[in-house]
Amino acid sequence: MRSSHRKSLNRIVLVALLFAGTYPVFGKEVAAKSVSSRAERRSFYTAPPVIPHVVHGWQTDKTCLTCHDQIRQWRGATSMLTPHPEFSNCQQCHVQQAAPTWQPKSKFLGSSWNGLAEQEKGIRANLVAPPTIPHRYLMRENCVACHLDVHSNFPASVEHPKRSNCQQCHMMPKANKFILVPLKKATKQTVANASSENSGKNSGGK
């Protein structure tokens, strides 16, 4: 039983190695570039990306989707596909970073904000195993919205875009620190404090 198990495992590894060339194995560079291009447009790791262009005046709820309902390339720019078209009040979360020219600039007084940094690439169990998903995907359930090779500054693209059932192979690792802790766990320690000595103060990250 045990030996036959090992045999079949060997066979799988062998077959996998044969196919290894077909699948991209991101090197450090690719991962670093992808991470830094994400960081460019996010104040912190879980922030929604900002809008890198001016948004002019009066909008309808379809204005953003005229470009962002598909991936379009135009004058060297590539539009991102929205992974969540059911939310069409886009500027509720995504804010422009270049106000229109008629609007006077005003002085920013400075900030010591230092948000959670961009995270590393996913982990592979072995050389040819599919990498795990290194980020949470609330509002980003459509993986190929980002992981498509048209985004030149975001090279973590998938080479098998037709296989759209991504989570079939790419898993969320169990101890993923970006996935939310359940309430009980999030407050357990503090509750214990509160009832034992009524201090209730949670020292947070200290």
């Binding site: 104040s43 900002v50 970073q97 270049a98 106000a99 006077p104 600039k105 005003s106 920013f108 007084l109």
Partner: peptide
């Protein structure tokens, strides 16, 4: 107004 992104988005 002390948040860079919000200040840039809506300066004045």
């Amino acid at each position: 107004g002390r948040v860079r992104e919000l200040k840039h988005a809506m300066p004045s």
